[in-house]
Design a protein around this nucleic acid. Structure first.
Lengths: 187, 187
DNA sequence: TATTTATGTCAGCCATGTTGACATATTTTG
DNA sequence: CAAAATATGTCAACATGGCTGACATAAATA
């Protein structure tokens, strides 16, 4: 299928990372000039980032929806269904579909809440943890490869950038979620 | 059940951006310790990043698929259908569906290739460009807000990080695509 | 006791991805 | 030139994972 860019030699530049931005000429009448490079890089980076796990998931007949659920349950054991709904921004019906599969196949289990017996607190099983970890390690390889190519401050810089990209409303909540994750763990 | 990361430390800080990482203790027998913070931050950042345009698109009865097509056609006018398929990593049937709607409603137009009359080169109309720009500016606002919060080197750092996250195979191609975009532009 | 909350479920719709088969025009190749 | 390869489009069927609406149940709360 036809290489997309058979394009001859592409005039000089090797397009080193510092050269990517493209022209900065703003559209005359409109607002600011779009930051095209970051917009496109985010698309491609995320596409590849989620692409790795997809291949593994396919073998299990799972999709990205399963991955997201499994990931957050693994990272935040004992979370309520409602918490998960908030994080994923989907309806309970959508969640129910994939959650049921994960439970039926023994990746996730639900426990009645201690204080509130209406709640179904979510935990991964050993099997679920293993899969979640496997997927996370695929993504970690990519991240570490990237950090390896960049300088020593790379992790911190990435963390700061990504954090700043999150909605201001959610940000504190997200940071709390992330930093609290390891404290809780399965008892 | 292998505790993957029973961090225990965590110093009870305020979870400032520099403290988010969580424990670094590797799981004893398994591979490396997953870089959870970046994995999750990427999820949340991307979720919000694509969330802004979604609201606007809904008013036009368009979805993300339309957005992606419109974006790339706007940025890379005159591209072949095959190029777009490669970039988006979808089948021609999937592309055909949304492309047809964009053409029918006057956002995109197709021109026979000059040298190869089998090709249908893609261009945005004025209407298409306006919508594409509007969406890009929403995303740009978020990016600029982020860069504003971070130091002066933020744009470069983000570009380097995102670039390093892309598949090595595609990377050169992607960078060429991005850097060439503004040179071509509408004549 | 009455209401609210947390969760689940049935039923159906929509957007967007997939595969497979096939059609048409055009370019390239033997 | 004839045959093959290429660029694109289309029909049909199906899968995934969103959505809404309606309704059910158990438990907590007012």
């Amino acid at each position: 299928m036809a290489d997309i860019n058979s394009s001859a030699k592409d005039s000089g530049g090797k397009a080193g990372p510092a050269d990517v931005a493209g022209g900065d000429a703003a559209a005359p009448g409109s607002g600011k000039a779009p930051i095209w490079d970051i917009i496109e890089l985010l698309f491609f980076a995320y596409r590849d980032f989620v692409g790795d796990p997809d291949e593994v998931l396919a073998k299990f007949a799972f999709g990205r929806a399963h991955h997201r659920v499994l990931h957050f349950v693994n990272r935040h054991p004992g979370m309520k269904v409602a918490d998960l709904l908030d994080i994923l921004n989907i309806t309970k019906q959508s969640l129910g579909r994939v959650l049921k599969q994960l439970v039926d196949q023994g990746y996730v289990l639900q426990k009645e809440g201690d204080h509130d017996r209406r709640q179904r607190l979510l935990y991964v099983t050993a099997k679920g943890e293993a899969l979640s970890l496997k997927l996370a390690q695929l993504q970690t390889e990519r991240i570490e490869r990237a950090f390896g190519e960049l300088g020593p401050g790379a992790h911190d810089a990435a963390r700061r950038f990504l954090t700043a990209m999150i909605d201001n409303d959610n940000r504190e909540e997200v940071l709390r979620l992330i930093s609290r994750a390891e404290r809780v763990k399965r008892s």
